[in-house]
């Protein structure tokens, strides 16, 4: 099937469309390319090219502040992804497969952390922890501090919603008759879930987990508010440096972070392709 566009192949309108598209793609990728190129520049001065070198990458791995922040990032991402994936998947199942009291309120509540501006959520959590710690100190004499704990708790709070949305989309595509057939064959609800539903939604769960992982590894605004002294994550540490200026070290760290997100995208595309076989293959068929 060929697509009817109402445009002749070599018409001026068609040319204009093509030009715009390649300009937008240049706009998307030029900054990234410049950043990558300059990260291999040996010169201290970012703007002046001297010779290619891995000098700044070596410095990154020697920099204790960067490595400490990276470690914190990975700990927070692991904790928040695990907890949010479990809670988010359960929430998605409850919403798609059950009817219970307060369901509409629950549905709305789950969307709020996505809609609400990040700055507002950051403020909310800052005041909550500050007030809560003060109260805990007064009540039981325990005064926790801001740090990896508060960061992880905050990341879980926004990640649950994103996992729920992704898993729900997958559950929505699933034929409910499969589960009904299992029930007709005297499978218990749990057996049907373990044997039928869970394996089928697993790509959705993995997609949700990857999204949660990406969001946790990227978050600056909320983490900036709930991090304690000496317990920042990598993006927050880099954000602090970036505000002060442009250095070759930041270039190298940035490229490493960029490469990490590319790997995550590749993995998530792999999941989608392998499981659904939908986007690429089925589209190619009708071509």
């Amino acid at each position: 099937m060929s697509v009817v566009t109402g445009l002749r192949p070599k018409s001026p309108a068609e040319r204009l469309l093509a030009t715009n598209s390649w300009l937008v793609f240049a706009f998307f990728y030029a900054p990234i390319v410049v950043l990558v190129v300059f990260s291999f520049n040996a010169n201290e001065n970012v703007g002046i090219w001297t010779e290619p070198s891995l000098r700044w990458y070596r410095e990154v791995f020697r920099d204790e502040a960067v490595m400490g922040a990276l470690r914190n990032s990975l700990i927070v991402a692991a904790i928040s992804t695990t907890v949010a994936t479990i809670l988010g998947t359960m929430a998605a199942l409850a919403l798609e497969r059950f009817r219970f009291r307060g369901q509409r309120v629950y549905d709305g509540l789950l969307y709020l952390p996505i809609i609400i501006p990040e700055v507002t959520m950051a403020v909310m959590l800052l005041l909550f922890f500050a007030q809560g710690f003060q109260w805990l100190d007064g009540a039981i004499g325990w005064s926790p501090t801001f740090g990896i704990g508060t960061i992880s708790l905050s990341h879980i709070a926004f990640n649950i919603s994103f996992v729920t949305v992704v898993v729900r989309a997958r559950l929505g595509q699933l034929d409910p008759r499969l589960e009904e057939a299992a029930a007709d064959l005297y499978a218990t609800r749990w057996q049907a879930f373990r044997g039928i539903t869970l394996p089928l939604i697993l790509p959705g769960v993995a997609g949700g987990a990857l999204l949660a992982l990406t969001l946790s590894l990227d978050d600056v605004v909320i983490t900036n508010f709930v991090a304690g002294p000496g317990s920042t994550t990598l993006p927050v540490y880099v954000f602090g440096l970036v505000r002060r200026g442009v250095t070759p070290l930041i270039n190298a760290v940035s490229v490493i972070m960029l490469a990490a997100s590319m790997v995550l995208v590749a993995v998530s595309f792999g999941f989608q392709r392998g499981s659904r076989g939908r986007v690429p293959e089925s589209m190619a068929e009708d071509g």
Binding site: V220, V246, M257
Partner: peptide, 13 residues
Amino acid sequence: WSNFLVRTYAWKV
């Protein structure tokens, strides 16, 4: 999908 902070920083460069 790529890091928002890094993409913004690229423009600072």
